[in-house]
């Protein structure tokens, strides 16, 4: 565990496409990743997750509730670098599609929005926290993901 880069991977309002792409990129990189990364908090991989500090926190998905917003701020507070992964995190869409619903559409979904405690508007990540790096795409581009991850590794462990 000595000097491994502490990674957190978090999914908010999204389809988790970037998580799936990451698990496929891993097919060719898992041996190297095992050596350099401490996967501290990744629910798709493990149950014993630790939420204390991260060198890199990857966040996918848009922010659909106050509860999600508070969680995201908590992640920012304990992370050296925050990476917004994928279109929903970076632009809001498509998770934020209800923001531009017609008045009739908003009325159709209103009882569900209220019932499940959703925010009236879905936000993108940079609306609530400072984002250090963006990996665009719907899903994220595997090539840009690797390029940015390698750059972060070089920066954090020169």
């Amino acid at each position: 565990m000595e000097n491994k880069i502490k990674i957190g991977w978090f999914s908010f309002s999204c389809c988790e496409d970037n998580t799936i792409v990451m698990t496929e990129v891993m097919n060719d990189h898992w041996q190297e990743w095992k050596k350099i990364f401490d996967f501290r908090h990744i629910r798709i991989f493990k149950s014993k997750n630790i939420f204390d500090e991260f060198d890199i926190a990857f966040i996918e998905g848009a922010v659909a509730s106050l509860e999600q917003e508070e969680r995201i701020k908590a992640i920012r507070n304990i992370s050296k670098k925050v990476v917004a992964v994928g279109s929903c995190a970076i632009s809001g869409l498509p998770a934020s599609q209800r923001n531009t619903f017609t008045p009739e559409q908003k009325e159709n979904i209103d009882f569900l929005v209220t019932k499940f405690g959703l925010a009236s508007e879905v936000k993108k990540l940079s609306d609530v926290i400072k984002v250090d790096v963006e990996i665009p795409g719907c899903p994220m581009s595997p090539e840009i993901f690797l390029q940015k991850v390698n750059a972060l590794v070089a920066e954090l462990r020169p």
């Binding site: 389809c15 496409d17 498509p94 959703l118």
Partner: peptide
């Protein structure tokens, strides 16, 4: 898992956009 309201959002869209739109219901 929070709703993202795809069946509401598809209303009014062109039929040719629908498969790519509804793909985004799920990443796997």
């Amino acid at each position: 898992e929070y709703k993202r309201f795809f069946t509401e959002a598809m209303k009014g869209k062109d039929i040719n956009a629908i498969p790519a739109h509804l793909a985004r219901i799920c990443g796997t």
